[in-house]
Design a protein around this nucleic acid. Sequence first.
DNA 1: CTCTTAAGAATGAACGATCATTCTCTTTTT
DNA 2: AAAAAGAGAATGATCGTTCATTCTTAAGAG
Lengths: 208, 208
Amino acid sequence: MIEASAGPRSAVRAAAQRQRILCAAQKCFVDRGFHAASMATIAQTADMSPGLIYRYFRGKSEIILAIIEQQLEVARERIGELHATSDLAGALAGSYGKSADCNSEHISPPLFLELSAQATRDPQIAAASRASDAAVRAAFVQVLTRSQAEGGYGLSKAEAAGRALMLMCLFEGLKVREAREPQIDRRMLRAALEQVLAAIFQPPRQPS
Amino acid sequence: MIEASAGPRSAVRAAAQRQRILCAAQKCFVDRGFHAASMATIAQTADMSPGLIYRYFRGKSEIILAIIEQQLEVARERIGELHATSDLAGALAGSYGKSADCNSEHISPPLFLELSAQATRDPQIAAASRASDAAVRAAFVQVLTRSQAEGGYGLSKAEAAGRALMLMCLFEGLKVREAREPQIDRRMLRAALEQVLAAIFQPPRQPS
DNA sequence: CTCTTAAGAATGAACGATCATTCTCTTTTT
DNA sequence: AAAAAGAGAATGATCGTTCATTCTTAAGAG
């Protein structure tokens, strides 16, 4: 790679530069969208010349892929929090509408939506999305199937799969809503979320 | 306008041409995204010359706006079906993954997602989205607040507002999921949907 | 410590491609 | 024949990418 023949000093700097570019690109993608954000604008946001970007990335599409993989890592990290959070509805309602900069743990709604749309067109993005979704869903299923004594909800495997799917739809729907309705009443959102989440986490009703 | 000085004959043709352009543009936007779809490609899809499009639309952004308003009309029409549909979960699970052409009653997931992302950037799109959302939400609230004798669910106004919000999140989340996971197990989706929908439509539990 | 020097880092102008839009000309309709 | 509809090449702008060049850095020689 670039830093193969150089010392560790330049390797650190190269990584920092890469991160600076990714941060600027993410901001530009949020502000203007994937295709409308130009390399010139990204370079200006990162406070460097356009040509320099190509020392650290092969091109624009590689930047997009790098951002996706970065978000995938963030998603994996956030899975751990899931097990510890007791007030899930409150956390979701509280973070609603918060601006997500590049080192935030929450992905920006427009970025997430555009990324999901691109997943229907670009096979690489589709594969990355599937990987991320599978990890999140597995974590949901684990919590739902684990016995109540272990802090889980003791659902059957089939039940848990369905509930996990609905949880993902709900979270993703919140992202859509965040984009379309940024100034929502948080209190109402939180109350409504609590009810639906309670229903999803409840044991299945027996067929009469 | 264009057909102001002409007879009704040309007005009919003009409307048909407009519709042909909108249909082609919608297809191109789904396939490539808003910015990546070129006017040349749209013209080719509509089987006409690029210049001809400008006889019927002022430019590209006006085409986008027209598609949005068209989808808004479709949404309003679909609200009527809501009151009549008994098997909502089955209908949703059944239409999942079906390709949506331009005269379909279902908006294509990538188009919806890209549109929602653009709503965070373009004030006109944001306004149109808000109008559509308000109509849909009002219809949900109406069904939820109407007394059970009238086919409703007899919820209070505050309760209904929250439930309607969750319904919208769920539907929009399904759109996201449709984009990210086109080959889902429909049977599981339907079963899970039925449970969550039942919970959302249920009367509120009394505080013990 | 200073000078030399070579390589990496960074610049910004230049290039080819592409895009939205316009315009001139031709075809069709009435 | 007049007017509307349509075609398609031309235009100016913009974009991603490249490249010749300059600046910076740091290490080795004296």
